[in-house]
């Protein structure tokens, strides 16, 4: 997909025209530029995150995600542009912001020689009214390794301790840099549950990730970042629902996973069986062996007709789903390219 299509997805600069309008965003980044040795790692990035919402910053390695987050955390100073967190400047107003912002760094940032719970208690001592450490440890299953030194924890255990440290001060904004890297499925579930709870409490959560399912399951809003810019932005649904895919609005997809080598022409004709709709309204493709995408005016009858066709041909599908033409991963790969980097 050419970049010009993607730029249509960028947030409309409506409020930029009226700077006096109250900004309800908890995090607002405008025109952020950050250079290392003269090379722009972040290059005119725009981003907003609302309270009570999870905002995912999705991008390949080296896209500028971590640098952007570090500018929001006050750990780096922007070379150009503005960053506002809760209406304040993360560098100039650091003292006022620090109690209100929770941070989980990508590399954890945990001292290695101390015990897990000891560290959490230490971080909690920095706040006037922290969350009770034991309750938080219970939530994230830290008691199992409470007296183990950080050095001996697994990657997923460290991530959980780091997350606990990020939220122990009851922050209003939380920055999570790749929170579920190295986590087992149980840890991930615990982390996601906590993130959802924070969202319900009105916390603004900004997380970077390159895990598509994390963004798809958790995020209310996704910013796809590449080469230091946001190249697409919207809800997961907006991104996957065919916007920019070349299909007319309202067109959706039936995705069938079954045995490879089904009759594509037969499958394409299936949804329109016995209906007024001409079967030319539908297209069928097998993008990878055993995965079929039927794109057209999806409704209940069309879905029933597809499953009837499968039954007629003795095919037991592993899954039949309706939805956007593509998964978030498809969108992401289309936007950022399929080459390794």
């Amino acid at each position: 997909m050419p970049l010009s299509d993607a730029t249509a997805l960028e947030p409309a600069p409506a409020d930029a025209a009226s700077p006096a309008a109250p900004d309800d965003a908890a995090v607002r980044v405008r025109g952020l530029v950050k250079r290392y040795d003269g090379r722009a790692v972040v290059d005119g990035l725009e981003l907003a995150a609302r309270p009570g919402a999870v905002t995912a910053v999705l991008g390949p390695n080296g896209a500028g995600k971590t640098t952007t987050i570090e500018c929001c955390e006050g750990l780096r100073s922007p070379d150009a542009g503005t960053v506002r967190v809760l209406g304040l400047d993360p560098v100039a107003d650091a003292r006022r912001l620090r109690p209100r912002v929770g941070v989980m760094l990508q590399d954890g940032g945990l001292p290695t020689g101390v015990r897990a719970l000891e560290l959490l208690r230490h971080v909690s001592a920095m706040y006037a009214a922290p969350r009770p450490v034991d309750e938080l440890a219970e939530r994230l299953g830290l008691h199992a390794f409470a007296r183990t030194t950080v050095r001996r924890l697994s990657g997923g255990q460290r991530q959980r301790v780091a997350l606990a440290a990020a939220v122990v001060g009851r922050p209003e904004v939380v920055f999570l840099d790749e929170p579920s890297a190295g986590m087992d499925p149980q840890s991930r579930r615990a982390v996601w549950d906590l993130v959802r709870e924070l969202r319900a409490d009105g916390v603004a959560i900004v997380l970077t990730t390159h895990l598509m399912d994390e963004a798809a399951d958790l995020a209310d809003h996704v910013h796809v970042v590449d080469h230091g810019r946001v190249i697409a932005s919207g809800t997961v649904r907006e991104l996957t629902d065919g916007v920019g895919s070349g299909h007319p609005a309202g067109t959706r997809t039936v995705r069938v996973e079954a045995t490879p080598g089904l009759d594509l022409d037969g499958l394409r004709a299936a949804p329109a069986t016995g209906r007024d709709t001409r079967d030319t309204a539908w297209t069928a493709a097998e993008p990878e062996p055993g995965v079929y995408l039927l794109t057209g005016p999806v409704d209940a009858a069309a879905l029933a007709a597809v499953t009837a066709w499968l039954a007629e041909h003795g095919v037991l599908a592993r899954s039949v789903t309706t939805g956007g033409a593509r998964t978030l991963e498809d969108v992401f790969l289309d936007l950022t390219g399929r080459n390794l980097r």
Binding site: G74, R98, D107, G108, M126, A165, G169
Partner: peptide, 14 residues
């Protein structure tokens, strides 16, 4: 190296 200084700098400790 382990990012401890950066993490603690983001807490109210500064």
């Amino acid at each position: 190296r382990n990012g401890v200084l950066r993490l603690l700098a983001t807490t109210p400790l500064g």
